[in-house]
């Protein structure tokens, strides 16, 4: 299990990193935390001829509020996000899901951007990013563009990031009064999910739901939103009965994945359960957050 040979560069700026990428084309690969790429190299499932190490680019690593958005640099370590007060305040869902992502030593290296760019269908962060409606800042030599969460995840291990592009930051609209919840079934704690469900609810003072997002992970090639479930909730008072009905409204066809560790039938059985639990947690959380 030794990687095939490759060259290595460790640029110090975003511009240099992109220049290397452009020069080398599709045989180059960014190395972020290495927690997914390194095993792929060792197994020779990835065979880049150039590895561009992003770890020396300081401007990719930050957590800050800017224009009402929580901005997290792509190279910010998962562990740093888990420990951040700013994140706790503005996007606690990220911390909730990160507790299920690997283990302290993998979170010490693994990055937010790496997980989102890698877009493993069973990963948790993409589910949270979709539920939080994060915006993805992507750079290339042509400049910067911003992709909405609904457009970012395009397939299994496929995102809107194009050849020649680097994900530099994600931006999460702050909604301090919304509530969120997350549930997953994994075979062991810290493993990728068999099914995960994230819920995000904005509740008005009178108890009606003004906005709802429900996202399932590991049910298809990308995380998916459940509009039918969301529609069940929006504009109505949210309570246990409403939540159960909303969870049951998940169309079976949304759940496609059928894999070694869990069949489609099983996933279809538990998706509504996890959704109900995530919504219940979100409702409780919204109650806490409410003024």
């Amino acid at each position: 299990m030794k990687p095939a040979p490759f060259d290595y560069v460790a640029p110090k700026t975003i511009e240099d990193a992109i220049a290397h990428l452009n020069r080398h084309g599709s045989d180059a690969r960014f190395l972020a935390g290495g927690q997914s790429l390194m095993p792929m190299l060792a197994l020779r499932l990835a065979r880049p001829t150039l590895v561009i190490d992003l770890n020396r680019i300081e401007t990719l690593s930050h957590i800050r509020m800017q224009g009402g958005e929580l901005c997290i640099g792509a190279m910010t370590r998962q562990g740093a996000v888990l420990d951040s007060n700013l994140v706790a305040q503005h996007a606690p869902l990220l911390q909730r899901v990160l507790r299920e992502v690997g283990h302290p030593p993998t979170r010490a290296r693994g990055t937010i951007g790496g997980s989102l760019a890698h877009a493993d269908p069973a990963a948790e962060l993409p589910v949270a990013a979709l539920a939080l409606q994060a915006r993805f800042v992507i750079r290339s030599s042509a400049g910067e563009r911003i992709v909405a969460a609904d457009d970012f995840f395009q397939g299994m291990f496929e995102t809107a990031i194009q050849p020649g592009e680097l994900l530099t930051e994600i931006r999460i609209p702050s909604a301090a009064t919304a509530g969120s919840g997350f549930e997953e079934i994994a075979l062991r704690k810290g493993d990728f999910a068999i099914v995960s469900a994230a819920a995000w609810l904005a509740i008005a003072k009178d108890g009606t739901c003004t906005s709802a997002r429900v996202v399932l992970g590991s049910v298809g090639p990308t995380p998916v939103r459940c509009p039918a479930t969301e529609a069940h909730l929006i504009g109505k008072p949210v309570n246990a009965v409403a939540i159960s009905a909303a969870a049951e409204a998940i169309p079976e066809t949304l759940i496609e994945s059928d894999s070694l560790n869990a069949s489609r039938a099983y996933r279809r059985r538990i998706a509504p359960v996890l959704t109900r639990r995530a919504l219940t947690a979100a409702l409780k959380d919204a109650g806490k957050a409410a003024p």
Binding site: L31, M38, A42, V51, D53, T106
Partner: peptide, 9 residues
């Protein structure tokens, strides 16, 4: 910080 040395170059 505790990290895995097989996952670094």
């Amino acid at each position: 910080e505790a990290v895995r040395s097989c996952l670094m170059l």
